[in-house]
Design a protein around this nucleic acid. Structure first.
Lengths: 233, 233
DNA sequence: CAAACCAATCTGGTTAACCAATTTTTTGAA
DNA sequence: TTCAAAAAATTGGTTAACCAGATTGGTTTG
């Protein structure tokens, strides 16, 4: 177990080293937006690492929009400029694993917005999806079962109804970690789950009635216990 | 050029197909949290695709926290349960590329929060970093040069000072796309850039004075032009 | 002399063989 | 029959060879 973690962090360390080397090379060669990087083979040889490692590092930088690979052509510097590139590289290298508190803080921020947007933009199809998630949640709770997953699915349905694909993606990214931690620390006990049914229903009604302010208010009520928990750790 | 886009989307399509097949398999075999998936080789053979494709699909699901690979052991279902798993898979498969409007909307939401948090939590080191970014921006503008990158770096410095690693990560994810679009549509022309210097200074002062509400207010002023632009497309 | 063409080369992507660690099975002595 | 030890099979990760398409530089041709 410990070894697995070690190798993982080792792997991450290697990848960060390669990213740093790519950054230095780009600065040394004074590469500008649109310029071509040396080929993956050359990079792997120059850095003394495997081509797979180089590819993974490039893919990570591609994810953050700094590089762009074109098949059978090469890897190119994106149109963000050297200054921004260096600043972002620095941040990417220093990025730490998100802690639970920052996840909850971000979730609350996102959801207080998505619920308002959903109230404004929801379609009939969105309502249908939310209602299904809501009913699945009620049923589980009434059967006395754990319903953390159904809870989150209702919230994801709201995120989808918000019509903002970026926020939807971000919600998807943080949800698994939230679920894991909730089930680990038993954030949602039985009493809270029962209250949750009515709270969910209130949120749904506000969205259906297309009342953004009410929807936000009801979401705040729903998060009240969460706030308390989060700041009591 | 078009071909490249085609192959990219083709590739994405293949990956989504594999993800869907993995989902179906997990449902068929009734896999629960902690259970082991068939090996990558078996999956690639069963699905009739290369092992690389399978690995990439697994890595994507790992990114979203649904699977977890352990070296020399196997790939396991994360602790989020079947219901949440199916719901998230559905969302992941239907995820569309984020549009510019949703990016700006999300950026404004994030920054109005990070600037408040930064005002509360900023360290002396954070202030130093922000001041450097601010000065780099002023210098570029005063030289009549384009300063979109320096602008964004100042905002990233705020995100870092917020002490919320999740929001910091999310800002990093959306920044390159923002820069590209800003430079493409010339959102920041010369006049706005000059105004921007004072606006940045105001934000900095509010953060230094540890006044969250003032910081938020000044950030709103800074975003005013952006709001107008965004909703006039 | 310029434009069209073609083959050698270089590219990222893909496939297959290999590795070290782990897990399962076999084995043989107690 | 039991159970520890060893060997065989299985795993995700890594490396190296291979592929098809793009690039390039020289050659040919009008």
């Amino acid at each position: 177990m410990k070894i697995e973690i070690l190798t993982k962090s080792e792997n991450r360390e290697i990848q960060n080293e390669i990213i740093a080397k790519i950054r230095d090379l780009m600065n040394y060669k004074n590469l500008e937006p649109g310029d071509k990087l040396p080929s993956e083979r050359q990079l792997s040889e120059r850095f003394g690492v495997s081509r797979t490692n180089v590819r993974e590092a490039i893919q990570k930088l591609e994810f953050y929009g700094i590089l762009k690979s074109k098949p059978q052509s090469g890897t190119f510097v994106a149109d963000i400029g050297q200054v921004a590139m260096n600043g972002m590289m620095e941040d990417i290298l220093r990025l730490e694993e998100p802690d639970f508190k920052s996840l909850v803080e971000t979730r609350i921020l996102l959801e207080l917005k998505t619920v308002r947007l959903a109230a404004q933009r929801r379609t009939e199809e969105d309502l249908k999806q939310m209602k299904m998630a809501l009913e699945a949640y009620s049923q589980k709770v009434n059967n006395g079962e754990d319903a953390v997953q159904e809870d989150l699915l209702f919230h994801l349905a709201i995120a989808k109804a918000s019509g903002n694909s970026t926020m939807n993606t971000f919600m998807l990214i943080i949800t698994p970690e939230i679920i894991t931690n909730f089930e680990k620390y038993h954030v949602c006990d039985k009493g809270m789950a029962f209250m949750g049914i009515q709270e969910h229903q209130d949120i749904y009604d506000a969205i259906e009635a297309q009342d953004p302010q009410l929807a936000k208010k009801k979401m705040k009520v729903h998060f009240k216990a969460l706030y308390q928990y989060c700041y009591n750790i």
